[in-house]
Amino acid sequence: MSFQTSKQDGVVVVDVDGQLIVGNRQELKQKVLDELEGGERKFLIDFSNTGYIDSSGLGVLVSLSKKIREQGGELRLANLNEDLRTLFELTKLDTLFNIADTREAALSGF
């Protein structure tokens, strides 16, 4: 399980490789907050290689989204598989986040 960050078209892209759950969510949170403190404002989390997300993982995404918005930035999500889509719909978090089908679609409108 790991989180790889890269910069693409002025956007910080984080790839979640594995799960985003209670055991590793702090690592993601710290990585994104470090970038936010460093002045970055546009963030995209790519779930292409993600297995599952638990309630703690969802909580971290909500928390990061709020913190980024408070700084005038935006957090977008991309490449949710069918299970993850269902999870976001079940919790109605699909109404809270900008969720794109692909990384390119998410980056294009930033």
Partner: peptide, 17 residues
């Protein structure tokens, strides 16, 4: 946790899930 007033809560989804 799906009510509008709770949607931005960072916790409280575990038992619901």
């Amino acid at each position: 946790p799906t009510l509008p007033e709770h949607l931005e809560a960072t916790g409280g989804r575990g038992l619901f899930l």
